[in-house]
Design a protein around this nucleic acid. Structure first.
Length: 750
RNA sequence: GCGCGCUUAGCUCAGUGGUAGAGCGACUGUUUUACACACAGUAGGCCGGGGGUUCAAUCCCCUCAGCGCGCACCA
């Protein structure tokens, strides 16, 4: 082995060392059996299992991944050295909408579209894209030095994984938890798909609030173009002003959809007035027009009061035939025209500027258009309850604790989950329709009341479809058609919710489920963690992990959220190339106290300096060892005051480090180890050792203390800066070495 | 509107009921050989404002302000 000399070169070292680790097989827990002095018995050897937060196949390494992965890697490396069989399970997410969007953009450049290609060719195209680019993220993650078991890598659309996804769907259906309903859902007119609540983002916008005459009332609305879909008016039950109208049908004059576009006219019609708590007395005039088809709150009001649902906007965000002469116009154009016509007919009283939040698609940022459509919903109440109990009982701990509040708040006020999406890339629903039996949207389906949703009764009336993993051989309805599979696919989160077990083979589930930890930023706490918990309980009968580690978010130096489009992102690859992965890991953990991080590059530079320090200490130690070869295993005798002091500090560092890592205080531990190594060991003990080795009487003992403390320091530092410590370890000429520092054992202090 | 978090040295942040620490930066020495990506040292802070509890508060309580985030509203 080469001696430790010259300057440390992270680039060459990291690539070479990572390859050695991978080839050793020690990332695989099965190969760790019996290592580190434990018995090769899968029942008695302790395990530590971490599930990687699935990166999207469209993703490239960003700073969030560094945090997501470095923290668990510290734990994995720590427990591995403690003799645990550690499994760090990697995988990627097919990321339905995101991936479809990327490939569609590519097609656009080629002047074609998914519609031209057709479904089969399009999905084939996505698979090709995945083959080419879907693995990039793995290569980037490897550069971080994370010790995942790559032999177990899974993709959410792998055959085995898909089978579990469809199986879950069928099982939920059979249990009566999945139902099909015609309801108003959040819809992205650009992606032409439904979205769940958690896939929405909000953007502040200044719009106009229009005050319109409605019979005896004046009401305020920002969306006059939806007025043709109004099927009621609502007031608050405690609002004395309007008491006398509640429950009545009143006659109003409103804009007519008939006649010529350039000749606005009015017509008379009747509309009923209902009282509902959802109406805010203070807002506008306290009277609301209820448009169940184009507003989520209105849909609920409508359901409570049996108001009909009239759809006037279509899937592409245009007015439909019920809008009469306005049909075909985009909603924004229709709004302008309708406002003009309201003015012309004297129905518009006044306009006010109004600032509010509009929901936009999380993927393409297009404004959301609520529209009614047939979707599949997962009944959340019973599932949410299990997830809630899991945290309340302590079987899953959220770290830090204050994230329990948003977790429970979300679960306690949960709506049923829209799990179907109208895109092509994803798990196609295991639902088969009879081709001959047309379904009609019946009124009873339209008005699924809140009570019905929450009851335990099965809601779906499967009179023209079959839910089954395999395509039925014969249609049970008409007996002679080739059944047609539903064109919808599942929400991506439906499949990633199954990750802790669907990512494991049958055999592995026995050995490695449930696991110990997931680590992620707070933004996917409800999107993902919650759903993994209830899915694990539902399908495996046990919570999937004991701890959720919520780490801070990395912000720009001025405290802004990072954004790709603004170019304010922080590229970890830049740091890995410039300073090395160890320095990058150091820089991130150094700053990651738990609060959000305003990114400071100087911490990475500090990391590089620290690595250099370790390297040079290694040079010194190895020079001294040259004179007196020593054993790695034996604890030396401390003879001088300096010896005793450093041995003492080491013991304290060991205790504190183990305790800190196991309670997720990585930053604190790193600061302590830094302090111990730099100041106690280098500044103080090495200086003493220089003097002590000058005399023949103390030289030999000093070298044994020196090398022992150094070696122990490498072990302590290894989880944080694995490459440099491994490299030095391998070059150190001491006896009783293990094959890798990675599988050295940390002895507990006696 | 409700909730959570933050406000400490020029910058990024730790921290403790007894008048404050780190990294980076600045300044002054030192090329003392493991390391100048270093060593030895120095300067720099009414610990956001106000009030309270206490013998004592940066740390506990109340309140105000600013910033960030989540939820709700978004007719």
């Amino acid at each position: 082995m080469e001696p430790i000399s010259g300057a440390y070169n992270p680039k060459d070292t990291e690539a070479r060392v990572y390859k050695q680790w991978e080839e050793s097989g020690y990332f695989n827990p099965d190969k760790l059996a019996g290592l580190a002095g434990t018995k090769p018995d899968s029942d008695t050897q302790k395990k530590y299992v971490v599930y990687m937060p699935l990166p999207n196949i469209t993703g490239t390494l960003h700073i969030g991944h560094v945090l997501d992965n470095t923290a668990p890697d510290i734990l994995i490396r720590h427990y591995r050295m403690k003799g645990f069989r550690t499994l760090w399970l990697p995988g990627t997410d097919h990321a339905g909408i995101a991936t479809q969007y990327v490939v569609e953009k590519q097609l656009k450049k080629e002047n074609t579209s998914r519609f031209e290609l057709g479904r089969e060719k399009f999905t084939q195209r996505v698979w090709e894209w995945k083959k080419e680019y879907g693995g990039i993220i793995y290569e980037q993650l490897k550069k971080l030095g994370i010790s995942c078991d790559w032999s177990r890598t899974r993709f959410t659309m792998d055959e085995a994984y898909s089978k579990d996804v469809l199986g879950a769907f069928v099982r939920y259906y059979k249990k009566g938890l999945l139902y099909r309903g015609y309801r108003t859902v959040s819809w992205c007119p650009r992606c032409e798909t439904s979205l769940s609540d958690l896939e929405l983002e909000y953007k502040e916008e200044t719009t106009t609030l229009y005050y319109i005459t409605y019979g005896p009332f004046t009401l305020a609305t920002t969306r006059p173009e939806t007025k043709f879909g109004d099927t009621g008016l609502a007031v608050n039950p405690r609002d004395k002003r309007y008491e006398k109208y509640v429950g009545k049908e009143i006659e109003i004059e409103s804009l007519s959809t008939e006649g010529a576009l350039d000749a606005p006219s009015k017509k008379k019609n009747k509309i009923s007035v209902v009282a509902d708590e959802a109406v805010d007395v203070e807002f506008g005039t306290g009277v609301v027009k209820v448009t169940p088809a184009h507003d989520l709150t209105d849909f609920e009001i409508g359901s409570r009061h049996n108001l009909p649902l009239v759809q006037v906007i279509d899937e592409r965000g245009r007015m439909n035939e019920l809008a009469g002469k306005y049909a075909g116009m985009k909603t924004s154009d229709a709004r302008a025209k309708i406002v003009e016509d309201l003015k012309a007919t004297g129905l518009l009283q006044k306009e006010e500027l109004y600032v509010h939040n509009v929901s936009v698609c999380y993927r393409c940022a297009h404004a959301i258009e609520p529209i009614p459509s047939k979707q599949w919903f997962l009944k959340m109440e019973p599932l949410a309850k299990t997830a809630l109990d899991a945290v309340k009982s302590g079987s899953v701990k959220i770290n830090p604790e204050n994230f329990e509040k948003p977790y429970t708040a979300w679960l306690e006020n949960i709506r049923d989950w829209t799990v179907s999406r109208q895109i092509w890339w994803g798990h196609r629903l295991p639902v088969y329709f009879c081709k001959n039996k047309q379904e009609e949207v019946s009124k009873s389906e339209v008005l699924i009341s809140k009570q019905a949703q929450n009851s335990n009764n099965k809601i779906q009336n499967a009179d023209n479809f079959v839910v089954s993993i395999e395509k039925p051989k014969e249609c049970p309805f008409c007996k002679n058609c080739e059944m047609e599979q539903s064109p919808d696919v599942l929400d991506t989160w439906f499949s990633s919710a199954l990750w802790p077990f669907a990512g494991l083979s049958e055999k592995d589930r026995k050995n490695y489920y449930p696991g110990d930890l997931v680590a992620n930023a707070r933004d996917i706490l409800n999107l993902w963690d919650t759903r993994m918990i209830f899915s694990g309980i539902e399908f495996m009968g046990a919570v999937p992990f004991k701890n959720i580690l919520v780490h801070g978010t990395v912000l720009t130096k001025d405290g802004k959220r990072m954004s790709k489009s603004l170019g304010t992102g922080i590229d970890p690859l830049k740091y890995i190339n410039e300073y090395g992965a160890d320095a990058t890991r150091f820089g991130v953990i150094w700053q990651a106290s738990g609060q959000d991080i305003r990114w400071d590059e100087s911490a990475v530079a500090a990391g590089r300096k620290f690595l250099n320090k370790i390297w040079n200490a290694g040079r010194f130690v190895s020079q001294k060892i040259g004179d007196f070869p020593v054993s790695a295993a034996r604890e030396p005798e401390a003879r001088t005051e300096a010896d005793k002091k450093i041995m003492d500090s080491l013991m304290r560092a060991k205790t504190s480090s183990a305790r800190g890592i196991e309670s997720f205080e990585f930053s604190k531990v790193l600061h302590e180890l830094y302090d111990f190594f730099w100041h106690d060991f280098c500044d103080s003990y090495i200086e003493s050792a220089k003097l002590q080795t000058e005399s023949n009487s103390t030289a030999k003992f000093t070298v044994s203390v020196l090398s022992f403390v150094f070696l122990e320091s490498l072990k302590l530092l290894h989880p944080f800066v694995p490459f440099v410590t491994e490299e030095i370890y391998q070059r150190l000429s001491i006896t009783d070495k293990k094959e890798f520092l990675m599988v050295e054992n940390i002895q507990e202090n006696s």
